[in-house]
Amino acid sequence: MAGIIDIVYAEYNYWIYVTLMMIGFYAMIAKKNLIKKVIGANIFQTAIFLFYISLSDIKGGTEPILLHGETSTHAADIIYTNPVPHVLILTAIVVSVSTTALALALIIRIYEEYGSIEEDVILAARRKLNPEFSEYARQSEVDSQ
């Protein structure tokens, strides 16, 4: 028992990000509301970022900003956290917001066309609109089950 607690304690942020990822992922797949899907995507991606940042952290380290003027002499004494994941995540955050913006734009257009942001309603509307589609929709439902 103590071992498990140790594991949970030592890796607590690890458990958290797995949980967050699953929450976000679930929202992306299972939620019918398009905005909720995008919220889920945000949670999912942020959880991955948390994983990266956890990776970069070093016990007793400092921010990866060199202490001015003392770098050459004291470099060995100071432990800096790993800057590489930070850079990657800076990029990834920007990518994430770009995706979100595009997704929101699409949602707005969908709302303009269908008057709803609920997946069921849109699906029903498409079926009504396009008789050929119903055949396909049935198929894709079969696929997904």
Partner: peptide, 17 residues
């Protein structure tokens, strides 16, 4: 107009995953 957007959105969600 109508279908392209929904298709794109579905693709976006799958692609993001």
């Amino acid at each position: 107009r109508k279908d392209g957007i929904v298709a794109s959105f579905n693709y976006l969600i799958m692609g993001t995953v």
